[in-house]
Amino acid sequence: MNLISFLQYTFIQKAFLAGAFISVTCAALGMFLVLRKMSLISDGLSHLSFGAIAVGLFFGVYPYYIAVPLVMAGSYLILKITEKAKVYGDASIGIVSAVGIAGGVIIASLSKGFNVDLFSYLFGSILSIRTVEVFLSLLLSLTVLTILYFYYWDLFSATFDVEYAKTTGIKTNKINVILTLLTSLVVVLSVKVVGVLLVSALMILPAAAALQIANGFRSAIFIGCCFSLISVLAGITFSFFLDLPTGATIVMINAIIFALALLYKKIS
């Protein structure tokens, strides 16, 4: 099969369209998370999404309708636990993450019928993305990107120098809440692309690679988005032709880009 006929498949077109939007959104948001030392919140929330998807499948509701509000609530809980329980953010992420996985496993064992469905969410299945999921991905991606656009300078300032940002009237606590809620949306979206276990890679690796070679913040975000887009489109293509799992291929391409960026930095 050649590339032209490959691109004529409807399921490939859908995967490309949704993948392109999700990859750009992940990279843009991931840049802020990486710089704020919050990268692992995406990992914790993806584990929580596993539990939330299990709840959806158990009750026969479309899993994303359950996952979006539940994971958003979980992200807010992470902030509240950090604030109230005298623990650092990583510990509260650990708590919510563990509860998510444990809940998912218990529900899966209770049902006995949908384990196959549930496990497809562990590793992603973008080639089987449905039309409604493509629209949902577009809608949520555009929502997240629009919010990032309008809060760009607030996020920039609060990430670069939080103490200074406060003195210029920027509500840094509100920025934290916005960032965490957006992360929960993006995590749920990305589960379809790379799966629960690899979501954090999609948010961390493009940003980490871009940081090696960027010469300004705007260029860092732009480069990160390009890397992410390339990895997702190339990952879908290679996985199809080489008969490899798509999610894992995307992540490995991201890792290769990161290694090349490191090498470029060293050489230049």
């Binding site: 300078w153 670069f160 920027i170 940081l211 300004g216 913040f217």
Partner: peptide, 25 residues
Amino acid sequence: SINPLFPANVREVVLLGLLSRKKWP
């Protein structure tokens, strides 16, 4: 207070000083 890994250039850092006179967005 400053994030040492942040990839901001000098112009971007100085621009932050103007945010205090602006309203959202």
